[in-house]
Lab assay of single mutants.
Amino acid sequence: TLFEALYDYEARTEDDLSFHKGEKFQILNSSEGDWWEVRSLTTGETGYIPSPYLA
């Protein structure tokens, strides 16, 4: 399933992933509550992002 970022986000820890509004992601793991592990389709990087920032 693909999701798109609604807002920009700046990583706060080394496990987080910074991203920009409009960036698209593949969800790798959504079992961690509000923090999902994703792969950016723009950069190929993986990390955790806050799920409320996605649509």
Rank of each mutant, 00 (worst) to 15 (best):
P52F: 15
E32H: 14
G44E: 02
A55F: 10
D8V: 02
K24I: 14
G47F: 09
T42K: 11
H20V: 14
T42R: 13
A11T: 03
F3K: 01
E37S: 02
L17R: 14
S31L: 10
D15W: 15
R12S: 10
L28S: 01
D34C: 12
E23K: 00
I49G: 11
S31R: 09
L2Y: 14
W35D: 04
G44D: 03
E10H: 07
T13L: 11
H20P: 03
S31P: 08
T1K: 11
K21I: 12
F19S: 02
P50H: 13
R39C: 05
S18F: 06
K21P: 03
E23C: 04
P52Q: 15
E45N: 10
A55E: 10
D34Q: 08
R39G: 03
W35H: 05
T1E: 13
L41G: 03
H20I: 11
W36P: 00
S40T: 11
V38I: 04
Y48L: 12
W35Q: 05
N29G: 09
Y53F: 11
Y7T: 06
S18C: 04
E37I: 10
D15C: 15
Y7L: 08
S51K: 10
Y7S: 06
E14I: 07
S31H: 09
D15Y: 15
Y53T: 08
R12K: 14
L17N: 00
Y9D: 03
S18E: 04
A55W: 10
P52K: 15
D15M: 14
L41K: 01
Y53D: 08
W36E: 01
S18Q: 03
E45C: 11
Y9H: 05
T1H: 12
H20R: 14
R12N: 10
K21R: 09
G22W: 03
L6G: 06
E10V: 13
Y48F: 12
Y53A: 14
S30Q: 12
W35A: 04
I49H: 00
G44Q: 05
P50G: 02
I27V: 14
L54K: 07
W35L: 07
E10N: 08
P50S: 06
S31M: 11
T1S: 11
E14D: 12
E4L: 10
F3D: 12
L6N: 06
S51M: 05
Y9W: 06
D34F: 14
E23N: 14
E14S: 12
G44I: 12
K24D: 00
E10Y: 08
Y7V: 08
T43P: 01
E4M: 12
S40C: 05
A55K: 06
L28C: 06
I27Y: 04
G33E: 13
F3Q: 02
W36A: 00
F3Y: 13
E14T: 12
K21S: 05
S40M: 04
F25Q: 01
S30L: 07
F19R: 00
P52E: 15
N29V: 07
P50M: 13
I49P: 00
T43S: 09
E45T: 13
A11Q: 10
D34I: 11
P52S: 15
Y9N: 02
R39D: 04
A55M: 11
R39E: 07
Y53N: 08
H20W: 08
Q26P: 00
P50T: 03
Q26C: 08
F3I: 05
Q26D: 15
D34A: 08
T1Q: 12
E37G: 00
G22Q: 01
F25L: 06
L28T: 02
A5V: 05
E23W: 13
D15S: 14
P52R: 15
E32Y: 13
E23S: 02
T43Y: 01
I49N: 02
D15V: 13
Y7A: 07
E45G: 06
A55G: 10
F19I: 07
D34K: 12
F19N: 01
F3N: 09
E45H: 09
P52T: 15
D16H: 15
E10R: 06
G47V: 03
T46Q: 11
D8R: 14
R12F: 08
Q26A: 07
E32K: 13
K24V: 13
K21D: 03
E4Q: 09
K21V: 08
A55L: 10
L6W: 13
E32P: 08
S30V: 10
S30I: 12
F19K: 01
P52H: 15
D34H: 08
S18D: 03
T13N: 14
W36D: 01
S51L: 04
A11W: 15
L2P: 06
L28N: 00
Y7K: 05
T42D: 10
L17H: 01
L6I: 09
D16P: 02
Y7E: 05
E10C: 12
T43V: 01
T13E: 08
A5L: 06
A11E: 02
G44F: 05
F19Y: 07
E10Q: 12
E4F: 12
L17V: 12
E14Y: 07
T42V: 08
L2F: 14
I27N: 01
K24S: 04
P50R: 10
Y53K: 07
E14V: 09
G33I: 09
S18K: 07
G22D: 02
I27C: 03
R39L: 14
G44N: 06
A11P: 04
P50N: 02
L17P: 02
D16N: 11
E32G: 13
S30T: 13
E14M: 07
L6S: 07
L2M: 10
K24A: 06
A55D: 09
G47A: 03
F19P: 01
L2E: 07
W36T: 02
E37D: 01
V38S: 00
S31W: 09
D34L: 13
F25W: 01
E45V: 10
S18T: 08
G47S: 15
L2Q: 06
E23H: 05
P50Y: 15
D34V: 08
Q26I: 15
Y48I: 09
L6A: 07
P52M: 15
V38N: 00
L28D: 00
G33D: 11
